[in-house]
């Protein structure tokens, strides 16, 4: 915390206030804030924009963990724990839902601490496997205690703020705060330590960084925000069920962060816009695809969903192989290219 307040007063931060990038961000925030006024449809606000924001938090939390060199394949566990904890706290113990949301995040961070402690010595693949395994165990345990939790059939989540536009702004406020905190962490000394560990753990250790401690901090922070995202997600779909532990939700933040741009703050935001838009709007071309390719694949009644998922896989491969820093790097390159032309014109 002292590191954060120190950063707020530092020269770096004041210089940020004068940078162009800062104004771009402010412009972006303003754009998101006025967006609902131009979109009349409740459906778009509730089913497209809100999930976009929630998955941006979720993917940013995953991105923070990857920033420290730790790739999780089981983040759905923390999304689910956050979702279940916040909903159950409100329903069974009568905690105000908004408090429940944050306690759910803390609960998820607590479990994250335990898993992080177990994983602190593990390298990339082992960590990926253990986290993936943990998400399946979480599913098994929640299903096992179904008589208490009722997760298999699922249940309705309590209302934090009214649905629609109020919920949109509520999510937006939480997302802006979370992503600002993640940004400050990445830019602080803490973030520098994460980066050092990611680049070379042994060398980081040699320069006196307590790698175990910092890896744990990354784990706890990441799982906290994943838990918050889980609470919000359960709230946005008005329902929570064990299916939230599905591998789909574990792979989603990875997909979003990698396609958007790994290790950058804007990557998960861009990725979330892309992936959620694909999910929401691409099904509209399903009938066309079915007419075009349906006869080739008689085994399925609708070729749309598998083709879409396959294309996601292909996009992921292309991004990893040809643009390892994601769409963000492509945007930056284009911007730099345009700027270069301008600079050349000037004497």
């Amino acid at each position: 915390m002292t590191q954060l307040t120190g950063l707020l007063n530092s020269k770096k931060f004041t210089s940020l206030l004068h940078s162009k990038r800062f104004y771009f961000i402010m412009l972006g925030l303003a754009f998101i804030a006025v967006l609902p006024m131009f979109i009349g449809s409740e459906y778009v606000i509730g089913e497209v924009l809100a999930p976009m924001i929630i998955f941006a938090i979720y993917a940013s939390s995953w991105n923070l963990l990857a920033y420290s060199g730790q790739g999780s394949l089981g983040h759905a566990a923390f999304l689910g724990i956050g979702g279940f904890a916040s909903a159950l706290l409100a329903i069974k113990l009568g905690v105000p839902p908004i408090v429940g949301l944050f306690v759910g995040g803390l609960f998820s961070a607590g479990i994250g601490l335990l898993i992080g402690l177990a994983c602190v010595r593990l390298k990339a693949w082992f960590l990926a496997m253990v986290t993936f395994g943990f998400s399946v165990i979480a599913l098994t345990l929640i299903s096992q205690f179904d008589s208490v939790i009722g997760g298999i059939m699922g249940f309705a989540t309590p209302l934090i703020v009214p649905r629609g536009i109020p919920f949109y702004y509520f999510t937006f406020a939480i997302a802006a705060t979370s992503i600002l905190v993640i940004y400050l962490v990445m830019k602080s000394k803490l973030g520098l330590a994460f980066k050092a560990i990611r680049e070379n753990e042994l060398e980081a250790k040699m320069t006196g960084i307590n790698t175990g401690k910092y890896r744990l901090i990354a784990f706890v922070l990441s799982t906290f925000f994943a838990g918050i995202a889980g609470g919000l997600y359960a709230e946005s779909i008005r329902y929570i069920q064990v299916s939230i532990f599905d591998p789909y939700y574990s792979f989603l933040p990875l997909m979003i962060a990698v396609i958007g741009g790994l290790g950058t703050i804007e990557g998960p935001l861009i990725g979330s816009v892309i992936i959620v838009s694909i999910d929401a709007y691409l099904p509209r071309i399903d009938p066309f695809l079915q007419g075009l390719m349906g006869p080739l694949f008689p085994a399925v009644s609708n070729v749309g969903p598998p083709i879409r998922m396959m294309m996601l896989g292909v996009i992921l491969l292309l991004v990893v192989i040809f643009a390892p820093k994601g769409i963000t790097s492509l945007i930056n390159k284009t911007y730099a290219y345009l700027r270069r032309d301008k600079k050349e014109v000037k004497p």
Binding site: A66, G69, G71, L73, A124, W125, A128, F251, L254, M255, V258, L262, P305, P306, I307, M309, M310, L312, G313, V314, L316, L317, V320, I321, P324
Partner: peptide
């Protein structure tokens, strides 16, 4: 981590 991402892309492609 790139190997994990590639594997994930392959998982999506093979399954679908």
């Amino acid at each position: 981590l790139n190997e994990i991402f590639v594997s994930l892309g392959l998982i999506y492609i093979f399954e679908n």
